[in-house]
Structure formats: structure tokens, C-alpha cells
Design a protein around this nucleic acid. Structure first.
Ligand SMILES: [Zn+2]
Length: 492
DNA sequence: CGGCTTTGACCTGCGC
DNA sequence: GCGCAGGTCAAAGCCG
């Protein structure tokens, strides 16, 4: 803005320098003089000078606020690139005759008024800021309380299970673990079914809190930490980790490029001709950190070679750049979903209804779970013409168009996936508990998606969304960008 | 020269 | 045990 104004002034000056020798040296002044038509008549001149002074006072006041972090919206609104006026008007004032001194007094008064107003505003904003801080600290303490309660309850439950196991061997062990695992791994998915009938003797029901956000966090925490908290589930945990490692997320997208840009660094370590597909399959591993277990396979679809199928496996063992967050988070989330699905079923076969619960906003053609494949795989199909069945507008989830990553559609898809995952992770239940203050799921999805797509640095917004949804990341982060708090720590 | 791709060899799991 | 297919390794070569 300043640059434009300055250049404009300079241009004007050059043009008029040769025009009138009398005004030489005051060329810069005439930027405003000309605009105001200073010499038309005395009355209008004074009025206009007053207007000019008003501008000056506003501009100067705002100029003081430009680098103020507490600068409010109104100030921003007024400050629209009038930087040039300051210097010009300063020169104007130096050239003024007697009338200028009167105007200078008016100017001073106006400035004082403006300053007072802005100070008031600043006070208001500070008060609001303080209020928000208080709310945040309340929420934090509430969360900590619930977290502690949850841990103690889990220990209690574990003790009970152990005692029970001692009394009745064999089947009872299986049953006890099954109950716990099913309850917490299936968790909210089961809650969706059972939400009409309160379940006795579950941590969720024993400790319903008035703070829905905290409840959500506990729900999320339940899912992320339970296996580690219950030593009797050691075998399950090992299986779970194996499943996580083997769980795959397949993304089908139309792309002419040989590989989609997902923000990570990959090194090709192999290529094979796969059976039944004339196109070779390429194998890549993540090289962003030594020993990162993440791998991906890239292959063109046999039926439609414009479709690129990228299959991810594993979870990154290192902080991720913002650009890599969407895909990494989605694959991690999908792995979690797969894990939950496989754990929820006693015979190890994927519950066919699970997908509908996990990804209710995605039609089955967009996202599918496969248990028949050698590895549990969730497929995100971004190539089909689908309309979602929950009334979300197509503009919101543009799944019907050919998908080329990097065009800004990815964040919407990922946002949807994340939203669905978050819903699966407990937000659905909290909606029942929370009452009117809770966002409707569709609103939540839409705000999430909107926030992400509106943000030029959508990955930062996404990272924030992930942090807010998953809530399982440790509070520390080694990322210097304040916009991506916790983004680098979401590694399961 | 370091990092990456290429590509044939090798390993592993599975079905017959 | 054998063959097949998927997946990985690692030497050789390429490239900036
Ligand atoms: Zn990695």
C-alpha cells in the first residue's frame, strides 16, 4: 500500500514539475492540493482543509497503531493505504499561512479525540482478551481434572478386571478384555448406537461433566491412550501397533504427474510390475528423517490411467512441515480408524457398518474400507462424481470434479476426512451431552472446511484443526511457527 | 560429491 | 517343496 502511494506521488510530482515553476519544490504537496482543489474559494477551502485534517488525524493515529498487536478491526478498517498523506500533509502544513495554525489546533483536538477513542477501544479489547484467557485456563483445568479422573478410573477398572481374571480363568480374560477394548476402541461408535440408553458403569456416564469441550477431550484421550494405560491389553496393543503399521490409506486422484505432492520427501526404492496392471508400481519411503517407517506405493489405475493411486503405510516418526500435515494426518487418522474397526470386531473381520459410522458424509464411492486386502486399507476416492448424503453443498465438498492435488481441493477432502474421524472420535457423543452450545456436526464440518480453505496457509489451519480435534498431541512442540501449534507433534 | 533413480537380485508369505 | 506375487535391498548410474 505504502509503496503504491509513494510511487503514485512520485509520478504525479514528475509530471507537474515541468508544468509550473512557481510550485517547484512543493511538487509533493500538490498531491493533496490537487485532490482537494485548494484554490477554488475560501469557504470550501477551509471545509476541505478540515476534511484533510481529519484524514491526517485519523491516519496519524492509526499509523501509531499499525504495529500494535492489539490493533483492533476498526483501526485496520480506517487504515487503508493513506501513508502518502502523512508526508504530504506534513509538507502542506509547513507551507500553510495563518489559516493553517487554526486548523492545526483543530487537528490537535481531533487527534486527542481519536487517541481517547482508541485507548478506550484498546481497553475494551484488553478486557475481552483477559476474559478469553480466563475461559481458556478454565477449560484447561477442567480438562486436566477429567484426564486425571479418567486415568484413575481406568486403573480401577483394570484392577477389577485383573481380580476377575484371577477368579475365573480362560474365557473370562477374553471377555473382560473384550469389554474394555470394545468399549474404548469402538468407543463413540458404540455410543452412537447406544446413545438413547444410558450405559451403567462406564467412565463416560459416571463422570458426565457440564463442560462439553472437556468431555470431548476426555473422549478423544480415551481413544488415544487406552491401550497404553491398560497393561492387560499388552497383546492387543502389540496387535494394534502392528495393525497401525500395516494399515494403509489409499488415495485415488486424477493426476498427470507421476506422483502427487503431499509435502513429504520421498525416495524411490523399488519398482515392480504388478500383476494385472500394465503400469508399474513404484515404492517410496519417507526420507524426511532417518528411520521414518512411512512408505508409499504409487501406481496408475489399470482401467483409467489418468487416475493415480497412492497408498500410504505407517506414521511419520518426526515433525512434519505444514505442507505435509494434511496427508500425514489423514493417513494417521485413517490408520486409527482402521485400528478401531478391526479391534471392534471379535473375529477380526471388519464390521461392514463401521464405515458408515466413521465416514457418514462420504458416500461409499468416496471412501471405502477393505478387509479383504492383505492389509486393512481405507481408500479415499477423489475421482468419482459423488454427492454427499447429508445435505452438504457441493461447493463445500467438491468431490465431483477431477481431483488434482495442490489446487486447494485437498484441504476440503482432508477436512472432511478429519471431521469424520473427529466425529467418530467422540464429538458425536459430546453433541448429545453438550446441548445448544455445541456446533451441529455439519456446521462444524463446514466451519472447519471453510476455515481451512479460507486460510492461504491451509495446512497451518488444518494443523490447528487437527490439534483441536485430536487433542492427543503433547503440549510441547518444536515448531517455531505459532500458526501451527502442535502440528508437528501429531505423530501417533 | 551427495542424493536420487533404476533395476536385477533377493526375501517372504501364501496357495497348490 | 515349488512357483508366484508382493515387497525390499543394494549396486550402478545419473544429475544438479
Ligand atoms: Zn516421515
Amino acid at each position: 500500500m505504502n509503496l503504491i502511494s509513494t510511487n503514485g506521488g512520485a509520478t504525479w510530482c514528475d509530471e507537474n514539475e515541468n508544468e509550473d515553476d512557481e510550485n517547484r519544490g512543493g511538487g509533493m504537496n500538490r498531491v493533496t492540493m490537487d485532490e482537494v482543489d485548494f484554490f477554488s474559494n475560501d469557504k470550501s477551502e477551509q471545509q476541505q482543509q478540515q476534511q484533510l485534517d481529519d484524514h491526517v488525524s485519523i491516519k496519524k493515529t492509526n499509523n501509531n497503531q499499525i504495529y500494535d498487536p492489539h490493533c483492533n478491526l476498526r483501526a485496520h478498517h480506517v487504515n487503508t493505504g493513506l501513508q502518502l498523506l502523512i508526508t504530504n500533509t506534513g509538507s502542506d502544513q509547513s507551507m500553510m499561512d495563518d489559516r493553517t495554525s487554526i486548523n492545526a489546533q483543530d487537528n490537535k483536538r481531533a487527534k486527542t479525540q481519536q487517541t481517547d477513542q482508541l485507548q478506550e477501544e484498546l481497553g475494551r479489547v484488553n478486557a475481552e482478551n483477559q476474559k478469553l484467557k480466563d475461559m481458556l485456563s478454565d477449560m484447561n483445568s477442567s480438562y486436566t481434572n477429567l484426564h486425571n479422573r479418567f486415568i484413575s478410573l481406568m486403573q480401577q477398572q483394570q484392577n477389577q478386571t485383573t481380580e476377575h481374571d484371577h477368579i475365573v480363568n480362560g474365557k473370562a480374560v477374553e471377555k473382560g478384555d473384550g469389554v474394555v477394548a470394545r468399549k474404548f476402541m469402538n468407543g463413540p461408535a458404540a455410543e452412537v448406537d447406544d446413545q438413547q440408553e444410558p450405559e451403567p458403569c462406564t467412565p463416560q456416564n459416571n463422570h458426565k461433566e457440564p463442560d462439553p469441550d472437556a468431555s470431548e477431550l476426555v473422549q478423544l484421550l480415551d481413544r488415544s491412550q487406552l491401550p497404553r494405560l491398560n497393561p492387560s491389553n499388552a497383546a492387543d496393543q502389540a496387535n494394534a501397533e502392528a495393525t497401525m503399521r500395516k494399515a494403509r490409506v489409499s488415495v485415488r486422484a486424477r493426476s498427470e504427474a507421476h506422483m502427487i505432492n503431499d509435502g513429504c520427501q520421498w525416495r524411490k526404492y523399488g519398482q515392480k510390475m504388478a500383476k494385472g496392471n500394465p503400469c508399474p508400481r513404484a515404492y517410496y519411503r519417507c526420507t524426511m528423517a532417518l528411520g521414518c517407517p512411512v512408505r508409499k506405493q504409487v501406481q496408475r489405475c489399470a482401467e483409467d490411467r489418468s487416475i493415480l493411486i497412492t497408498t500410504y503405510e505407517g506414521t511419520h516418526s518426526h515433525p512434519l512441515p505444514p505442507a505435509a500435515m494434511p496427508m500425514a494426518s489423514t493417513t494417521a487418522a485413517a490408520a486409527t480408524v482402521l485400528l478401531s474397526g478391526s479391534m471392534s470386531s471379535a473375529d477380526g473381520v471388519m464390521n461392514p457398518n463401521l464405515l458408515a459410522r466413521i465416514l457418514p458424509n462420504c458416500s461409499s464411492s468416496m471412501a471405502t474400507l477393505s478387509a479383504s486386502a492383505p492389509f486393512p486399507t481405507v481408500t479415499l476416492d477423489l475421482t468419482r462424481d459423488t454427492t454427499d448424503n447429508n445435505g452438504n453443498s457441493p461447493s463445500q465438498f467438491q468431490l465431483g470434479q477431477p481431483q488434482n492435488f495442490g489446487s486447494g481441493q485437498l484441504p476440503q477432502v482432508i477436512a472432511q476426512a478429519l471431521y469424520n474421524q473427529s466425529k467418530f472420535s467422540g464429538l458425536q457423543m459430546s453433541q448429545d451431552v453438550g446441548g445448544s452450545s455445541q456446533l451441529h456436526p455439519t456446521q462444524q464440518a463446514s466451519s472447519l472446511s471453510a476455515a481451512i480453505t479460507a486460510d492461504p496457509n491451509f495446512t497451518a489451519a488444518l494443523a490447528a484443526a487437527i490439534s483441536s480435534i485430536i487433542g492427543a498431541a503433547p503440549p510441547s512442540n518444536n515448531n517455531s511457527n505459532p500458526n501451527i501449534i502442535n502440528s508437528a507433534t501429531y505423530n501417533q
